[in-house]
Design a protein around this nucleic acid. Structure first.
Lengths: 359, 359
DNA sequence: GATCACACGGAAAAGCTTTTCCTGATTTCA
DNA sequence: TGAAATCAGGAAAAGCTTTTCCGTGTGATC
């Protein structure tokens, strides 16, 4: 212990199964069996092995196990989300699903830099992860992961990809739009404006279409002139309100494409002395707590259930690893979180409403 | 592709060095030497090996390499940050520093659940990572990682820990407070209120002390009655402004303990027709873009340079791995990001000002 | 008392790569 | 031409664990 051979940089070397064998006075294989409850061992031997292992603080080396089993029980998550707003909930969901299967998840940050992403993938592949999940939404479908030879299953969660053979989990943006529209209409609103993000986002088009469906199904008139697109920012929300009011159209509600936009809109309305929700009701999208709860009044908003989406991703990844061949685009339901920006609304409308027809 | 032998779960098995050897007609060792540029090989042989490896898409198995080298070239990052607001910048910084050294970083999400954290650590240890970095700030110093036998270096980045032997990287909150105070004073403010978070956060106390230092060094009066603590929320920022104004004290500036608080304060001031920065200047803390830039006017705020903190963490982790024995608390400078909530201020004050005396 | 079955635990191989050591073959020099 | 030096590449071990296959020793049975 205190021998002179402990050099400056001495760090205790983790004990191997060999050390345990020696300490317990048995052979390597016996230790393995003893610890794993396999083979035929006397209970007394097993106990001796266990206590030796405990005493030494033995922890099997995953590298050796993985090498042998040809499974690492690990999946990699590649994200490009610089704020973590979306990836963290997805990560947590994945961990929920995979933790049960005793698998670990590691997040690598692509930072929207293809070279970096490439490097991460190289590294994950070299480490022989059992699967790779790609996340983080962009405007255009992202290119499928290159330099992948099919030796490992890939799954896109909250990411679109231009590859029909890929498995892709996305929120049901259309359903989310319907949910918002339906909620507003049930709250008695009939002239609903839609202030949203850049139209090159597929999600933007889907949310708009969802709103349109809700409106039409309720027998109301769809007014394309009340849809205006801009950036994903509060400033745009404010400007959009200015523009809408300038047109002198009557509106009694605004469905916003994101909570940031919604917050800008609410602020702009309050600045002008227009009451939310009494004069104009507002519904947001994202349920980004930090924004939605701080808005005055707090935002009623659509939640994409990213945690659940992550959980589904984890579950499906397990399938994929086991050889399941699912592919295509799967849409997961959004739900509505009712706060105050829309009146108290009909509370039942929360939940999986996207699944049932609105008729 | 469509042959009947491709069973349901068929997934191409990655080629091993053995396959390459066979394809190139040489021995295992020769392939290794050929690919790694070691040993004595004819250039022609080397080329043959390389081309065979290329053709087969050979990628060395990190598991085997790591097992042999007793190094995985991987560090684990444990976070408890549910929003990723802090961990993602830190992660990116770490990746910057470690990427250069050809090492990977994996983030695991502790989700503030000790059991889960434990499990992650177990897993990282079993995978024999070369180091573990712990992140995410809390009110109280967190307990040091248990179940760690010293076999792997630990570093706390943006996390306090109750263990004097640990290496701990933290932002210089005191310097940040000084920076804010100094900026306000140079902008001509003399009666500065401080609206901040819960006092059980060490950072809260440091920021306050920094402000106090700046005030005293400029020969102004420190007024403890102008310091009020609450939660980290916009609502608290709004309420605090109401309270401050109710006391009828004259104030011409507010230094807020976070951008969220600052935003609430600015909103409350505007609601009352008080001009920011003309009547009251406001400085925030965090430089959380999404909040600071959306505030009207945009917030001048202290940036903790978390990316740089992460980079430093990565660098120091490399030292630790190489046997360096650094320990203790290291404070890294904050900087000031000037926007509009404080007038244009003296622009020079940006940067590493925390390092130089303010006299 | 000899044979059989069974319980227990050891030996060894496999999984993949790197590195050390060693053997032939070739070249160099006397 | 023979000895020494150099070159090229093969063989094998190490790193750690699991699992299969065997070889003991014990008790039971005839």
């Amino acid at each position: 212990m205190t021998s002179p051979k402990t050099s400056l940089s001495a760090r205790p070397v983790p004990p191997t199964i060999r050390d345990v064998a020696q300490a317990a006075g048995v052979s390597l294989g016996t230790v393995s069996k003893g610890l794993n409850g396999t083979g035929q061992l006397r209970e007394e031997t097993r106990a001796r092995v266990r206590s030796a292992a405990e005493r030494l603080g033995f922890r099997p080396n995953d590298l050796a196990q993985s090498l042998l089993r040809r499974r690492t029980f690990t999946v990699g998550l590649i994200s490009t989300d610089r704020y973590g707003r979306f990836s963290i909930p997805v990560l947590e969901g994945i961990e929920d699903a995979l933790g049960t299967a005793r698998m670990s998840v590691f997040l690598c940050n692509g930072a929207d830099d293809p070279a970096r992403e490439r490097q991460h993938i190289e590294s994950l592949l070299a480490k022989r992860v059992d699967g790779i999940i790609v996340t983080a939404r962009r405007a255009d479908p992202r290119p499928p992961l290159d330099l992948v030879d099919g030796s490992v299953p890939i799954l896109y969660a909250f990411a679109q990809v231009a590859d029909v053979d890929a498995l892709c989990l996305l929120p049901d943006d259309l359903g989310g739009g319907r949910l918002a529209g339906d909620h507003l209409i049930r709250a008695g609103r009939a002239r609903i404006a839609h202030v949203t993000g850049p139209v090159d986002f597929e999600a933007v088009r889907h949310r708009r279409d969802g709103l349109k469906q809700a409106i039409m199904e309720h027998g109301l008139t769809w007014r394309p002139e009340l849809v205006i697109s801009g950036e994903w920012s509060e400033a745009w929300g404010r400007e959009a309100v200015a523009r809408l009011l300038a047109t002198r159209q009557t509106i009694d509600a605004i469905f916003c494409g994101s909570d940031q936009i919604a917050r800008g809109a609410v602020d702009a309305l309050r600045d002008r002395g227009i009451a939310v929700p009494d004069d104009i009701a507002v519904v947001g999208f994202d349920n980004w707590e930090i924004i939605a709860a701080a808005t005055r009044p707090p935002l009623t908003t659509v939640d994409m259930n990213l945690h659940e989406l992550g959980r589904q991703a984890g579950l499906r990844m397990l399938d994929l690893i086991d050889g399941g061949g699912e592919r295509g685009i799967v849409r997961l339901p959004c739900s509505l979180v009712v706060r105050a920006s829309c009146g108290q609304g009909d509370k039942q409308n929360t939940g999986q409403a996207a699944d049932r027809p609105l008729s």
